[in-house]
C-alpha cells in the first residue's frame, strides 16, 4: 500500500525541468501530462468519428518518407478526399508522420513537436527504419525503434512505402480511431516516466522542458 502511495505522490509532483536555466524555468510549465479519460460512450463515438474524418497532419518531413507525401497530396492519390490535410503548426495538427529513420538530432525535435500537439494525437511511422532500424540498424546516429520514444499507432512498412500503402495506413488509423483504440496520448501520459527515461538516455543535452506544453 505504501509503495503505491509514493507512486501516486510522485505522479502528482511537478516536473524537475533540470535542463533549463533558472530564468527559463519561470517561462515553462512544469505540470505533468495527465490522462484524460474519454467522455460518455455515445458522445465519444461521435467525437471519434469527427477525429477520424478530419486528420490534420503535421508538416514536418522528418526523413526521406516525406517525399512520398507530396504525390499523396496531389491529384493522383489526393488524400484530401479522406479529410487529410497538411497543417504547419503542431498545435493544430493531430497526426504526426514519422517519415522514416529518425536521427538523434531529429528525434529531439520529434519529441518536442509531438508533445506540443494537442491530444488526441496519432502517430504513423513510415518505413522499415522506424520499426527496427532497417538498413541503418548499425548506424550510430539513427534510432532503431521509434516506439520507445513516442507511442506509435500505425506502422507502414517498406523502403519507401508506396503512396497506396500510406493511404491504407491512413485508413487503418481511421478504423483504430473510430474503434477508440488510438489512445497514444493517454498511453504517453501513463508511461511518461518510461518514455522520458528512454528519450533522455539518447538525447544527451536536454535543454528543453521535460514536457513541452
Amino acid at each position: 500500500m505504501e509503495k503505491k502511495d509514493i507512486n501516486e505522490v510522485e505522479k502528482q509532483m511537478n516536473l524537475a525541468n533540470d535542463g533549463l536555466s533558472d530564468k527559463e524555468k519561470t517561462l515553462f510549465s512544469d505540470a505533468r501530462p495527465q490522462v484524460v479519460p474519454p467522455v460518455h460512450k455515445i458522445f465519444e463515438n461521435f467525437r471519434n468519428w469527427a477525429r477520424a474524418q478530419s486528420l490534420w497532419m503535421l508538416a514536418f518531413g522528418t526523413g526521406c518518407g516525406a517525399i512520398e507525401l507530396r504525390p499523396l497530396m496531389t491529384s493522383r492519390y489526393d488524400m484530401s478526399r479522406y479529410g487529410i490535410a497538411p497543417r504547419p503548426s503542431p498545435r493544430q495538427s493531430s497526426v504526426f508522420i514519422i517519415g522514416g529513420y529518425a536521427s538523434l538530432k531529429t528525434i529531439k525535435r520529434i519529441v518536442r513537436s509531438y508533445e506540443q500537439m494537442q491530444g488526441p494525437k496519432f502517430v504513423i511511422a513510415l518505413g522499415s527504419c522506424t520499426i527496427n532500424g532497417g538498413m541503418y540498424y548499425d548506424s550510430y546516429y539513427t534510432i532503431n525503434r521509434i516506439d520507445h520514444y513516442i507511442p506509435v499507432d500505425i506502422y507502414v512498412t517498406g523502403c519507401m512505402p508506396r503512396p497506396e500503402s500510406l493511404l491504407a495506413g491512413f485508413n487503418k488509423l481511421k478504423e483504430r480511431i473510430r474503434a477508440g483504440r488510438a489512445d497514444g496520448m493517454n498511453k504517453y501520459a501513463e508511461n511518461f516516466d518510461w518514455y522520458k527515461k528512454n528519450q533522455k538516455r539518447i538525447i544527451k543535452d536536454w535543454n528543453m522542458p521535460d514536457y513541452n506544453w
Binding site: 469527427a50 477525429r51 474524418q53 478530419s54 490534420w56 493544430q92 496520448m185
Partner: peptide, 12 residues
Amino acid sequence: IDIIKTHAKRVA
C-alpha cells in the same frame, strides 16, 4: 467536421 474535431480535442 474540422470544427467538430477541433472542439473535440481533449487538451487546450
